[in-house]
């Protein structure tokens, strides 16, 4: 009896394996397990058998059907995955066709440097202050302790505009007038940076532009010292340029700070590079800003922003920043 079903299984196995597609497999499944199948027919006749025989045959039939089901399942999986493979193959795409470069826009290198500096000082607890680019003579010079007749005020360095009294209104020559505006508008303590566009009466060349950008920091609080200035510059230097950079201050002169200094930075073993100017806010400037120099002390430091962009990207001509050649704008 077993032999009969073994033979059936053997035949069925052959047929299942020969099935070419899911449709013929489905047909075969009906043939092998459906109402008219050998095993279903045999099951129907079980009632005519003795209990012993019935049990024996029943178990053989169940075993046979289970095996048939397994074989069919394996074959179906095989055919299905083959079908999926074919479908996937037919969907093949060359993604490099779509890789045509575009794209996000680009932030101007000056903006990138500007925002990087803002973020750095925000991390140190500073706010960001702004002021007008067309300034009055008082905020740009007078309040900053530039005496009348100071060479910086003359027409060789400063661009004036036709507005109000002659030589009363100008294109700000530095971001320092924002210091005065901040003092006028805010109560100390002040911890703020002032980035912005500035102007000089200069002919454009590789290192000069009539328009460029500066950033400066102003701190006014009780008991601020020159040591605080040196320490803050050191912190800024290592934060912006890297841990192994160092800074130094050298005596210098600016009308609006005293003591004044130039600050240099260097990579250990490298050459000192002059970066900017700094100093303790001059008592006359504090007074011009409406503050009592006996109560408040402060420092300020500033430097050119464009130069940092040039340094970072090894750009050798300042004019390139403002020429707006597409090949330049999309590089950074």
């Amino acid at each position: 009896m077993n032999q009969e079903y073994d033979l059936h299984l053997k035949e069925a196995k052959g047929e299942i394996e020969d099935s070419a597609d899911l449709e013929s497999l489905k047909k075969l499944e009906v043939e092998l397990l459906g109402k008219k199948s050998v095993t279903t027919q045999a099951k129907r006749s079980l009632g005519n058998l003795e209990p012993e025989e019935r049990r024996e045959l029943g178990s053989v039939l169940n075993e046979t059907r289970t095996k048939l089901e397994e074989m069919l399942l394996v074959k179906r999986k095989e055919l299905e995955s083959e079908l999926m493979r074919e479908q996937l193959e037919s969907e093949r795409l060359d993604l490099t066709e779509f890789d045509r470069g575009h794209r996000l826009g680009h932030r101007h290198v000056v903006t990138q440097t500007w925002e990087r500096l803002e973020d750095l000082f925000i991390g140190m607890g500073y706010t960001v202050s702004e002021g007008p680019e067309i300034e009055d003579e008082w905020h740009n010079f007078g309040a900053l302790n530039f005496p009348l007749g100071h060479p910086a005020r003359d027409m060789y360095d400063t661009l004036y505009v036709d507005y109000g009294e002659p030589m009363s209104t100008l294109l700000r020559t530095h971001t320092s007038p924002v210091q005065i505006r901040v003092m006028e508008e805010e109560e100390p303590p002040i911890y703020s940076i002032m980035p912005g566009r500035v102007f000089r009466s200069d002919t454009a060349d590789a290192t000069h532009m009539p328009v460029f950008h500066q950033i400066e920091a102003l701190v006014i609080d009780k008991g601020i010292t020159f040591g605080d200035l040196a320490g803050t510059i050191e912190t800024f230097t290592t934060a912006y340029f890297g841990k192994d950079f160092e800074s130094r201050l050298r005596p210098s002169y600016f009308p609006f700070t005293e003591p004044s200094a130039e600050f240099d930075i260097r990579h250990p073993g490298g050459k000192w590079l002059e970066l900017g100017g700094c100093g303790m806010v001059h008592p006359e400037v504090l007074k011009a800003g409406g503050l009592d120099p006996e109560e408040w002390q402060g420092f300020a430091f500033g430097f050119g922003l464009d130069r940092l962009a040039l340094m970072r990207h090894e750009i050798d001509d300042l004019r390139e920043l403002f020429r707006n050649d597409y090949r330049f704008l999309t590089q950074f």
Binding site: M124, G125, Y126, T127, P189, I190, Y191, S192, V219, D221, I224, T225, G227, D228, A230, G231, T232, E234, T235
Partner: peptide, 8 residues
């Protein structure tokens, strides 16, 4: 060199 702590 010292670093003042910002109060803002």
């Amino acid at each position: 060199k010292t670093v003042p702590k910002s109060k803002t």
